[in-house]
Design a protein around this nucleic acid. Structure first.
Lengths: 208, 208
DNA sequence: ATTTGACTATTTTGGAATAAAAGTCAAAAG
DNA sequence: CTTTTGACTTTTATTCCAAAATAGTCAAAT
């Protein structure tokens, strides 16, 4: 594994992640072989292990990239001078887009993959916390603005994130014969409807 | 299969269902053999097929019993002269109790069983519709009483039921290593908290 | 510091043999 | 005619195993 962060190393790292992301996007985690990624960038398989501990770590790194990007987008929304209500709505829409990326990326079933691989599970859990923090910030901002009633914003943020996750999981797991999930336009539509409805009722429910 | 509904037949039917319910409750659907049920009531396995088409039908019948009981309880609540808000709250609590019965009964994973067995899937779908109708009635009642804002109660009822289902499924599927689900006190508590919070925010969200 | 071929270790796959349970039916019992 | 059953066939689940594929290691080379 690489220790020193030379420019040369950084380039290689990016190269690997980009190739891996393409493979994972097409074939999913399990059906992508390390040798495939290596061949794509004209490298030997063994070299990959110089840069990354194992396959799971590469996958995790790819996911993390997307998450970081998402958090950046969200921070922009959080810092924007608009009503808290609008921030929540934008979050919901942006979150669906992220889901879409994650799914086409991994072709994983929420149910199986997450529980088994500890590293990925851990990453998602951290991200979940980050999300709750962001929503908590939005709610606090809404309370400060007399937009929302001043209740336990922490609990509300947790509830908001958890429920949205529940909705996503349920809709995605419908009709899943195999362990791969296809994010059909129908599911996309349904998910959008239900999450938007949830957001709108949630907002009304906590409005001062 | 039995055609004529003699008293004698009815007694046998009940006997089978009761024995089956015990077995399913202890060992779940897949780990309960027809021969076990037959032995429990001193009958030959072949006789069971005189009364029921197949194993799945027995299981379905057992589940249906519980559902019918639940609907009766709910109708009592719906007809009671209390605020719609209270009716919704009572529904949520009663619904958790039903879930508990269903789970100890079948030890099934929502994810696997339901999709595969068409008959059970169908029963649950019908029950789902029945639930939406009941909640729709409560919402209509609430609108009539000026308790709730007069919006599309039908859509709201659907959303309410679907979201509660999502929440149940997600919490139940947490940490499920095998395909059996244990309804631990911890999960029970969590489920209660989240569904109650959802109900309370939902009610505020649609209150006039 | 980086790369790799040759290596080992682990996982997955497929298939055949086996066991277990589902489901059928003709004949018997009441 | 209704109900029951032992003996039967069919289907499904389990086990075992060998072969193939893939993950991951390491000493030597660049």
């Amino acid at each position: 594994m690489v220790e020193k962060d030379s420019d040369r190393s950084q380039v290689k790292l990016e190269q690997i992640l980009t190739a891996a992301q393409k493979r994972f996007g097409h074939y999913g985690l399990s059906k992508t072989a390390m040798i495939d990624i290596a061949n794509d960038i004209g490298m030997s398989k063994a070299s990959l292990y110089y840069y990354f501990k194992d396959k799971e770590t590469i996958f995790t790194a790819v996911m993390e990239r997307e998450q970081v990007l998402f958090v950046h987008e969200m921070r922009k929304i959080i810092d924007a001078p608009v009503k808290a209500e609008q921030k929540l709505t934008e979050y919901v829409n942006l979150r669906i887009a992220l889901l879409q990326k994650m799914l086409t990326l991994g072709k994983f079933s929420f149910g199986s993959l997450m529980e088994i691989k500890p590293q990925i599970h851990c990453l998602l859990q951290d991200f979940n916390k980050e999300e709750k923090k962001m929503i908590g910030d939005i709610l606090d901002y809404g309370v400060k603005n007399k937009e929302f009633s001043a209740e336990t914003t922490h609990k509300h943020a947790e509830f908001f994130i958890d429920t949205l996750l529940s909705i996503r999981k349920k809709i995605l797991s419908e009709h899943s014969d195999e362990d791969t999930i296809e994010f059909s336009p129908h599911k996309y539509q349904k998910l959008k409807e239900q999450t938007n409805m949830f957001a709108s009722i949630f907002i009304k429910g906590i409005t001062a």
